[in-house]
Design a binder for these strands. Structure first.
Length: 383
DNA sequence: GCTGACGGGG
């Protein structure tokens, strides 16, 4: 047990230290080759680990491995490890396992492959129920083939004789919202009700996100009213959908009021609320309010995260608030999940522009020792 | 256990 976990951790952990980054071309080429070799090793280790029955139950490792390969655009390797799964005839005949493959292909944007697995299910001796039907719809959405979703939904219902459930409808509604076809999304709700399926919290959240996100408050409020009439209790995501809409429309006073009122509704504000407000004030160019809200973190049950800094740091650089940006970077640079190399480079460039070469070098040095790949200090010429 | 549905920036 523990030896398997240790092996898994050693092999598939993402916290492996990359080699020393270097802006020099030859060096960065060798870094790229190193990464490539590393990923190839990962693929081989993954495939051989699959022979272990317990390994194949580790959904999380499948997800993180495929995600790493997808972000490196190694799509043939994704195909290699997922097609390899078909050797495990006992597993592949279980719908849950095959659904996993379909959904992993979908998350990698490989809809064609997802569809192929779905089509092969009969010959893989695997039953197809509404579960794999939904997995395929979801893969279609995740691959951003939104226009295909509705067609697939109609076509497969007939072909397979499956009866769609709430999840099927929610997936199609999501696709319509993504395409901005909000009226059609609402028509789908009518259709599901006709088929005696009740829209649930997720249905409403998808719609709220669609309408409010496009600044359509009147229709968004209609969805909200329908949600309440259906005795569906809004959660933090429902409120955040509205909040994002308010922030997009620069309605900051209403946005603040909304967040302030959450407590009395028994809803705990989360990091998305704060980021939305900070984003709004950055968009407004309102440094005072950005400062004020940033300081509010500790009063609540959340901490600034990657999205916070991704909003805040470019804003501070633009405003010439290099002191604050510099301090923030120094504080979070050892936590890679919070800040990326592009953010550091922004601050370094800002410092250089103010002729604070020593500070720029210091930050670049810190970046280097924390294995960031982006840390160039280009000293402007003196003339 | 066997994950099919809702989030944020560039």
């Amino acid at each position: 047990m523990s030896s398997l976990s240790r092996l898994l951790h050693r092999t598939f952990s993402t916290s492996k230290t990359p080699p020393q980054p270097n802006p020099n071309t030859i060096q960065s080429l060798s870094t790229a080759l190193y990464k490539e070799r590393n990923l190839r090793t990962l693929v081989d280790k993954f495939k051989s680990s699959c022979d272990n029955d317990r390994f194949r139950t580790k959904t999380g490792i499948y997800v993180s491995t495929v995600r790493r390969l997808a972000s490196a655009k190694k799509f043939p390797w994704i195909k290699e490890i997922l097609e390899h799964q078909k050797h495990y005839t006992h597993d592949i005949s279980k719908e849950g396992f095959t659904v996993r493959l379909i959904s992993l292909y979908g998350k990698s944007g490989m809809f064609e492959q997802a569809h192929k697995v779905f089509d092969e299910m009969p010959e893989l001796k695997c039953d197809r129920t509404v579960k794999s039907f939904n997995a395929l719809l979801g893969a279609c959405v995740n691959s951003k083939k939104f226009h295909k979703v509705d067609e697939l939904f109609r076509e497969l219902q007939e072909k397979l004789g499956v009866k769609p459930d709430v999840i099927s409808y929610n997936t199609v509604i999501k696709a319509f919202c993504e395409m901005g076809k909000l009226e059609e999304a609402v028509l789908m709700v009518d259709e599901m009700e006709k088929n005696e399926l009740k829209p649930d919290l997720i249905t409403f959240n998808i719609l709220l996100h669609g309408f409010y996100g496009k600044g359509q408050f009147v229709d968004g409020d209609k969805v909200w009213a329908k949600m309440e009439n259906s005795n569906v209790v809004p959660d933090i995501r429902s409120y955040n959908a509205k909040l994002v809409g308010l922030v997009c429309e620069n309605k900051m006073a209403e946005a603040v009021e909304l967040v302030g009122g959450l407590g009395s509704k028994g809803v705990q504000p989360d990091v998305h609320c704060y980021n939305a407000l900070i984003r709004g004030y950055c968009k407004d160019g309102n440094l005072e309010e950005v400062k004020r809200w940033y300081g509010e973190w500790e009063k609540y049950d959340c901490a600034p995260d990657r999205a916070t800094f991704a909003t805040l740091i470019p804003f501070l650089c633009e405003k010439g608030e290099l002191d604050w940006a510099f301090e923030l970077c120094k504080g979070i640079i050892h936590r890679r999940r919070l800040v990326d190399g592009a953010m550091l480079q922004l601050v370094i460039d800002g410092l250089v522009k103010e002729s604070r070469i020593e500070d720029a070098k210091k930050l670049a040095e810190m970046g280097k020792s924390n294995n960031y790949t982006c840390y160039k200090v280009e000293v402007p010429s003196q003339d």
